[in-house]
Every structure is written in structure tokens, then in C-alpha cells.
Amino acid sequence: MSETGKSRRWMLYAPLGLAAAAGAGFWVMLRGLQTGSYNPTGVPSALIGRTAPDFSLPPLDGADRPGLSAADLRGPLPGPVLVNFWASWCVPCVAEHPQLMRLSRDGVPVLGINYKDKTADALAFIRRRGDPFTRLGVDEPGRVAIDWGVYGVPESYLIDRQGIIRWRYAGPILAETLENELRPLLRRYA
């Protein structure tokens, strides 16, 4: 009785334990979906831990901001910076915009790359909603975006003081994403 009985009783509880573990995993997933830390269609960036690829983008005509090139992202930098790919035709970019404005008010340099956009539309967008960008490059053909591994706007990259890319976020940085993910990273790499 003793030896086989014990192992049999253990097997009775195994499915229960398995179901509990699966439930816990599912709960973590759902919570991550809510807070924005888990994205089921997200793809890890190949650029994490590397420096920004070489590029040089012209400024947006009429925006009164300098363009953006890789030289602006090479360390040492005074602090971490956020590179943001956006477009006026991109609806999630509208939802993200207040967070970019908040970051720029807090003194975090937000470097914009305007992706496949029309000059007039891009200008109208920042005139209407505010301009959070310290620099703004124009990538009309979308070739620089490919060098960064961008697969949809908005997409953001956090670059530390040494010029190393530390974080990539595909999708709009909402208020929760800003507080739960980006702020801790900004403190860590400050």
C-alpha cells in the first residue's frame, strides 16, 4: 500500500496543480495585457543592446526643429533619450501624443522621426496637438525605419547615455505604459 498508494495519490493532485499553474500563467498574461507590459503580437527588437544604425534625416520644413542623424544618438549623452517614429495618418499616434508632451515637459529629449507622411499633414499635427520633439527628422521613403526594424507606427526606442538602445516599444505609449515601464527605465538609465 505505502509505496504505490503514495504515488497514486500524488497523481490525483497533479491535474489540479497543472490547472492551477495554467490559471496563474493566464492571469499574469491578462494583467500584462491590461498594463501594457505584455503584447501577444509583439516582436523583440534586434537592436536591443546595440547602437543606433547609421542614418541622416532632413528636418521637417516649417517645423523649426533640426533634423535627426545617428550622430545625435551617439554617446556620451547628457541623459537617456526617446526616439519616436510617428505619422499624422496614424491613429494610435494621437493617443500617444499627450505622453510624449508630458515627457518633453519633464525634460526628456523626444527625438521624432516622421514616417511616410506629407509635410503639410505632419505640420498640422504638431501645430494642433503640440510639438514634443527636440529634433525631428523626416523619413518619407521609410528606409531609415527599416534600418531600425520598425514594423508599424508608433514605435519608440529608449537610448541610454552611452548611446545603447535599451528598450523598444511597438505601439502607442499610453499613460500606463509611461508610468509602469518607461519611467522606471528612465530612472534606471538616468
Partner: peptide, 8 residues
């Protein structure tokens, strides 16, 4: 392409 977009 792999260099830019990774294994995925």
C-alpha cells in the same frame, strides 16, 4: 533583413 528585424 535578419540584422534589422531579428529571428522573427
Amino acid at each position: 533583413i535578419h540584422d534589422r528585424y531579428g529571428d522573427y
